[in-house]
Simulated assay, not measured.
Amino acid sequence: MRPVRVLLVDDQPLLLSGFALILSTEEDIEVVGQVTDGRQAIEGVRQHRPDVVLMDVQMPVLDGIEATRVVVAESDARVVILTTFDRDDYLFDALRAGASGFLLKNADTEDLLDAIRAVAGGHALLAPEVTRRVISRMTGRVDADGGPRLTEPAVTPGPPQATEALTQLTDRERDVLVRLARGLSNAEIAADLWVSEATVKTHVSNVLAKLGVRDRVQAVIVAFEAGLARPGA
């Protein structure tokens, strides 16, 4: 099998060279390019056709959000947002633009490698350290100090198009989507619903197709926007 082709996008040269050095030691990963802004990222995707793009958010010329939107629209490349999170207030716009997940810039080497392989394999990625904050900020449930507040009884229903998409799901598919929004893996969903993991995979595929989304992250966004899931559930 050919290696996973990766394009690195960051305006900090030291980070670029560090990521490239780490990835160059892996036989199943190939760095096909290193660029420093969103405009170059778009051109790099067109030229190199990577499988995965590690995309910074705050960059000159064109930021990572707009670059992600173009990359997702024009190619099959999957985008992982690289973030310090506390500084990236528009992370959710990047996810809605089609990013397959995000990773903290201070993540361990193994986490970085696992993320690239997982996203290249069609999975979505949410860094566990910030998953609760992602959910909280998306649904507007934050305390005065900016931290997550996970005790709210409900979430305000989201936009009509999200709610309408959910009506296409069967009861069991809705059950699966709710558990996806809670961060459960396929194996955990299977155990919770007393079905096989293969059955769960089928349900997940059906959910993604009916909602018209690329991966699990986008499905979770729909679930929260439509009020099907809520923090602390």
Rank of each mutant, 00 (worst) to 15 (best):
F224I: 09
D114S: 14
G18Q: 08
R96Q: 13
Q168T: 09
G232P: 05
E30D: 13
E173T: 13
R214H: 11
A73K: 00
L23D: 02
A187M: 04
F224R: 13
F92R: 05
M59P: 01
N186R: 09
L211E: 06
P160D: 01
L62K: 13
V207S: 10
H48W: 13
D143H: 10
P159A: 01
L177M: 04
D86L: 07
P231R: 05
R230W: 11
P50Q: 10
V220R: 14
Y90Q: 10
A120F: 11
A191Y: 02
L15S: 13
S100Y: 14
A191V: 02
A154I: 09
D114Y: 10
F85P: 00
G146K: 00
M59A: 08
R149G: 01
R214K: 14
L193N: 12
G158C: 00
G101A: 15
E173K: 13
G183Y: 12
E74R: 07
M1P: 03
Q40Y: 02
E43G: 09
R214W: 03
S205W: 05
V176M: 03
A198E: 14
R2Q: 06
V220S: 12
L21A: 15
T199N: 07
A144R: 10
S185N: 03
T131A: 14
R149W: 01
S17K: 14
T109I: 15
T163S: 12
A219Y: 05
E110Y: 00
R78F: 06
V178N: 00
G147A: 07
S75W: 03
T68F: 04
P60E: 02
R216P: 00
T139W: 08
T25D: 05
G122M: 12
H48E: 14
L91H: 07
E74I: 03
R96W: 04
T84C: 02
I81R: 05
A144K: 08
G33N: 05
G33F: 08
T25G: 11
Y90C: 01
D114L: 13
T84Y: 00
I135V: 15
L211I: 02
A226Y: 04
I22G: 02
V142Y: 02
D114E: 15
P50V: 10
Q161L: 04
A77T: 08
L104R: 11
R96P: 00
L82V: 03
T84A: 15
L23M: 13
D145Q: 06
E27Y: 02
R117T: 10
D114G: 14
E110W: 00
M1L: 02
Y90M: 07
A219M: 02
T36C: 07
R133W: 13
G64F: 09
Q12N: 15
G33Y: 06
R214T: 13
T199M: 11
A187T: 10
L15R: 06
R2Y: 00
G18L: 10
E43M: 12
V222W: 06
L112T: 05
P128W: 06
S136M: 06
E30P: 01
I116G: 07
T151C: 03
F102Q: 12
L7E: 06
V52P: 14
G33L: 08
L16I: 14
V176I: 11
P157W: 09
E74K: 04
L21V: 02
A191H: 06
Q34G: 00
A219D: 04
V45D: 04
V45I: 11
M59R: 07
T68P: 05
A190Y: 06
V35S: 01
A99K: 12
A20C: 08
